[in-house]
Design a protein around this nucleic acid. Structure first.
Length: 203
DNA sequence: GGTGACGGTCTGAGTCATCA
DNA sequence: TGATGACTCAGACCGTCACC
């Protein structure tokens, strides 16, 4: 990887007109805002991941040329989260979806839409030791253009009277797919046993 | 207006395959 | 043999929309 001292890799392809500076400022924004809501993580971690994705959308909407759909009711439930200039039906090359997750590689969605995906991979550090005063740390940002072929269908056995999750799509071979899409990686955090860990052994 | 289906966001855990 | 990655299943919650 050819990252700079801060952890940003300028060789990773980005969506048109999206710059490393936009990502850097978005990381600051997400970490600052979500650190205020840390108690939500301990109540319902999956909901908190949704919040991380939402704050990612808000940050890029405010800081980059990518804008939310101009109709709020559509923006909150339709693909994509953002598009270049806020176009209503952007081509995949100008569609940008924001997702937050704690997982090191995997990515799931209910659809296999083609487009750009920016994945905010975060960890929760209640001590605020990794980044001073930040209880939520974005330790990696993946930016990748995914085609329909990059997704695989993951079915569901949910049934009446039994419950279960709805079906999803998952990215095929996520580790190899995202290994070349790491736009930012915290210089002091490494993966150990598939978990982000401080390089000196502390988490 | 109430209700249920559906679409949307995720997580954790168990198991298996692969590789050094 | 242990570490890691992939696969699969199970669970939670919220908002919108169509239908009655």
């Amino acid at each position: 990887m050819s990252a700079d001292a801060e952890g940003f890799d300028r060789k990773v392809p980005l969506p048109p007109e999206l710059k490393i500076a936009h990502i850097r400022r978005a990381i600051d924004y997400i970490e600052r805002e979500t650190s205020e809501l840390i108690e939500v993580y301990f109540e319902q971690a999956n909901v908190f991941s949704g919040l991380v994705g939402i704050f990612g959308v808000r940050a890029l909407h405010a800081l980059s040329p990518y804008k939310k759909h101009k109709h709020p009711d559509v923006a909150q439930q339709r693909f994509p989260d953002l598009s270049l200039g806020g176009k209503l039906s952007p081509p995949p090359e100008q569609a940008l979806e924001s997702k937050g997750t704690t997982r090191p590689w995997a990515l799931q969605s209910h659809y296999n839409h083609a487009g750009w995906y920016i994945v905010w991979r975060y960890l929760v550090d209640p001590t605020g030791m990794i980044k001073a005063g930040k209880k939520v740390v974005i330790w990696r940002v993946d930016v990748a253009f995914l085609k329909e072929d990059d997704w695989k269908y993951e079915g569901s056995n949910a049934a009446e009277g039994r419950g279960g999750r709805t079906h999803t799509f998952g990215v095929k071979l996520p580790a190899s797919r995202f290994s070349s899409a790491i736009a930012y990686r915290h210089p002091k955090i490494i993966l150990r046993q598939s978990r982000p860990t401080l390089a000196n052994g502390e988490e």
